[in-house]
C-alpha cells in the first residue's frame, strides 16, 4: 500500500440477504481493502457461509449483493489459472483455494491486495512488471539436429516447473521484492522457475547462466523458502529450481577448480 494510504473503518452488510435469527447459517466477517493507489479503507462485510465455501465465493457474494464495483481478478475458480491471488490474513493465497472452514468461527478474515505490486483498485494490482521480466528471458532454443526423442525420466524434473500457474504469490512473498524492492535487479522466484524449466530442458541449447547471475540477480536470493511455502501448485521452488541453478552458476563463476580447468582445456 502506498505511503499516503489512510485506513478508515467502514461497515456494510446486505441486510435483507442475511438469514434471519434462528437460522443455522454461520455469518463470516470480512474486512476487505477498498481503495486505489492513493487512498484506501478497510470495509467490513458480513457474508453467510455455505458448505465448502472459499474466500472467492465470499468476494463474489459481496459483488452480487453489496458492492458491485468491488474490483477483483478471477477466472477459473479451480486453482488452475492463478488470477485470484491476494493476502488473506497476511498470507499470500489463491482466494479460490482458501476455504472458510480453515478459519475459526467468528474469526475476522482480512482480504488485501498483493503487497509487492502497486494497487490499481481494491484487490486488483498492477503485475505488469512480471510480464516485462518474462520478455527478457532467452526463449527455448532447440539444440541443432535433435531427433525430438526424450525420456520421461529426463523431463519429470522440468514438468514440475511447468506446473506454474503464474499466480505471482512467490513474487509477492519474496522479501527481496516485498521488503527490499530490488525489482530492477532481481527477477524473482517465478522466473527462476521458468529459467530452470528451460535450462534443464533436455533439448534446449541456449545458455542463461550469465543472465541469471548478472541481470536476474540470483545471488540476491537467500533461499529462505517463502516462495516454496506459498506456492499453490506445490512446486519445490527453492530446492528444485533455485538451488540447482545457483549450483550451476557456481560451476561457471565461483568454483576455482572448474574455472582453472576450463581456462586450461576448453578452447575458445
Amino acid at each position: 500500500m502506498p505511503a499516503e494510504c489512510t485506513i478508515k473503518k467502514e461497515s456494510m452488510d446486505a441486510g435483507h440477504d442475511l438469514p434471519g435469527e434462528g437460522h443455522k447459517a454461520r455469518i463470516a466477517t470480512f474486512k476487505v481493502f477498498r481503495g486505489d493507489k492513493n487512498t484506501g479503507s478497510e470495509v467490513e462485510y458480513k457474508v453467510p457461509v455455505e458448505e465448502g465455501m472459499v474466500v472467492l465465493d465470499a468476494i463474489h457474494y459481496i459483488q452480487r449483493n453489496i458492492s458491485p464495483d468491488l474490483a477483483v481478478r478471477w477466472n477459473c475458480k479451480a486453482a488452475k489459472c492463478g488470477s485470484c491471488s491476494a493476502e488473506v490474513n497476511g498470507k499470500p493465497r489463491l482466494m479460490c483455494k482458501t476455504r472458510l472452514d480453515d478459519f475459526s468461527s467468528g474469526e475476522e478474515i482480512k482480504v488485501y491486495p498483493m503487497k509487492s505490486f502497486p494497487v490499481i483498485k481494491d484487490l486488483a494490482c498492477d503485475v505488469s512488471w512480471n510480464f516485462e521480466v518474462n520478455k527478457k528471458i532467452t526463449p527455448f532454443t532447440p539444440k541443432e539436429n535433435t531427433s525430438w526423442i526424450m525420456n520421461q525420466r529426463d523431463i519429470d524434473r522440468v514438468q514440475e516447473f511447468r506446473k506454474c500457474i503464474e499466480c505471482f504469490a512467490c513474487q509477492n512473498v519474496c522479501h527481496v521484492i516485498r521488503d527490499h524492492d530490488l525489482k530492477p535487479k532481481f527477477a524473482g522466484p517465478r522466473f527462476f522457475v521458468r529459467v530452470a524449466g528451460l535450462e534443464m530442458h533436455p533439448l534446449d541449447g541456449a545458455d542463461r547462466l550469465e543472465a541469471l547471475k548478472n541481470d536476474m540477480g540470483i545471488g540476491f536470493c537467500n533461499i529462505t523458502k517463502c516462495c516454496t511455502e506459498v506456492c499453490p501448485e506445490d512446486i519445490h521452488i527453492t530446492d528444485n529450481a533455485i538451488i540447482p541453478l545457483k549450483e550451476r552458476v557456481v560451476d561457471r563463476y565461483f568454483d576455482p577448480v572448474k574455472i582453472i580447468l576450463r581456462k586450461l582445456f576448453v578452447k575458445r
Binding site: S67, A71, I120
Partner: peptide, 8 residues
C-alpha cells in the same frame, strides 16, 4: 454504482 475505474 461507482466510477469507471476497474468496475466489475
Amino acid at each position: 454504482e461507482g466510477s469507471r475505474m476497474y468496475n466489475p
